[in-house]
Design a binder for these strands. Sequence first.
DNA 1: CTGAAAGCGCTAACAT
DNA 2: ATGTTAGCGCTTTCAG
Lengths: 326, 326
Amino acid sequence: MATINDVAAKAGVSTATVSRTLNGKSTVDPVLAARVQAAAAELGYHPNGLARNLRRQETAVLALIISDVENPFFTAIARGVEDIAQTAGYSVVLCNADDNEEKERRYIDVALQERVAGVVLSPTGRATNVDRLTERGTPVVAVDRPLLKNTGDQVLVDTRLAARDATRHLLDGGYRRVACVSGPPGVRTAEDRLAGYTDAVGEANALTRRAEFRAEGGRLAALSLLDEPEPPDALLIGNSTMAIGVLEALASRGLRSGQDVGIVSFDDAPWTTLIDPPLTVVAQPANEVGRVAAELLLARIGDGTRKATTTTLQAKLIVRRSSRRG
Amino acid sequence: MATINDVAAKAGVSTATVSRTLNGKSTVDPVLAARVQAAAAELGYHPNGLARNLRRQETAVLALIISDVENPFFTAIARGVEDIAQTAGYSVVLCNADDNEEKERRYIDVALQERVAGVVLSPTGRATNVDRLTERGTPVVAVDRPLLKNTGDQVLVDTRLAARDATRHLLDGGYRRVACVSGPPGVRTAEDRLAGYTDAVGEANALTRRAEFRAEGGRLAALSLLDEPEPPDALLIGNSTMAIGVLEALASRGLRSGQDVGIVSFDDAPWTTLIDPPLTVVAQPANEVGRVAAELLLARIGDGTRKATTTTLQAKLIVRRSSRRG
DNA sequence: CTGAAAGCGCTAACAT
DNA sequence: ATGTTAGCGCTTTCAG
């Protein structure tokens, strides 16, 4: 593979001139510049990014470490991050931590070793350790879930408030016994949604289940709830993936959502309008979460001294028919 | 940030010894090794991957360039690739080309510049140019869609056969006029699905629409089909994203799937069992596509002289109720 | 405006 | 078994 030396030799100039020409930093004699361009083209020269980055001590790539590539909420964040990064000339590489702390740590290591310019991260939870990144001076912004040690920028969604409002909406619709299916303990968003729910129904009336943020988790939780001596007549569900399982459980029991049990789920997945009745959801501004995160990250890359900010975005209840009787 | 020199100094050894210790290549005196480990730990030393890769001329990261992060088919591929890569000690970075040739080219450049060990790619189509990668000796495997210049490994799904069978299934079920909503011209999978459909209905009876692989594309295509003088009574749909749009269109016209118009869609998305009636689908082995691709890539990284192979996996028709009357 | 030369941090010969 | 040293390919002073 052609190196800068080959180009320089072919063009009859120094490597410095090649570098200058190709990076357009300093001004070069048009004649030499043309020779360089020609030589580079002819040789099919592609600068070695590794060498360049090693020298410059920086990279134009952002790492985005998310907890689940198969969750539409996170892929929407990814799109948001990408849109912003692209326009600023950064590439973004997506790493799927799979809600697994071990994988997350590995990807943080990769980010560190590859010396990415910055990282956007949705922390898996409890043990996420971002210190190595910050020590090294790599900017980090947390999305969706806060870091334990609140240092650095974060962009979150006010999920507690949203959960409270969604629960109240159910209560206002005449449902009497609202239960909540939330994510696993230790995951902040799961805790918050539970807390918001409890805000609305009151400690004494809380009927809850915790499960993995997956369809199977939702299914099991719903089944167990329906087997209660005094089963719920409405459910608030932690995310759209769980909702799939919950809806399956309902169907298996011959229960109609809305009619028999009111349903509100977090996340406005594309299929939610397709089912009958259409699902009432709490739509989180996922794309915007990504955009804001990327902007924050870029700002911090530009100025390491900015002080940390926390942005909290609002979710929006979209009322459809699964939360209404008849 | 601590470098190998700092560690060497602190441990009172040479950088070579530090390198040897940390990489476990050659054997080192346990006493010195311990000193090195201690020094590294104390300094919070993380090897600079850029420098290492520059020296070694290789990287333990794979790039996966896919056409759409928001399409469950591709994220399932991603999971497959990741699973295999992880166990082999490789990290994979996901790049979202967004079915956009410009972005795809940018990511190919990034892969090239960062000197990744290999790339798995679902080509956007027409103009995908992988030559720069192959010239440089970077192994590439194409998934889902073949490269124009058939060089290198590929793992595909026999989508034409699957489309033909799905169409026949509709015909066997008593539907008389089956139409096909497929993806944009130039995209191989779209062409193949159309061809398989035509195999089944015959050239003369083909009634088709081409659209973007998105919900909106599906919606418009379906509407236009329903406005035909002799509208179809069954539809074969190119992917699950389009299916969302098609189903919306049907609903807006008060048509029931199965009953009024038989439906089969490609891709077994999680929500397909939730709707009423449940959707008959052509399930593609996406996860396996990813796994096989990763294995092929790893094999080729290990042995650059292997000759190129094409693996074709079979899709499976899952019959549910959207393709049955009553 | 251009070239020479000094590294960025690391690994791999080559010596010892 | 350990240390010395020469680069990997590039950018960037520093001279000229």
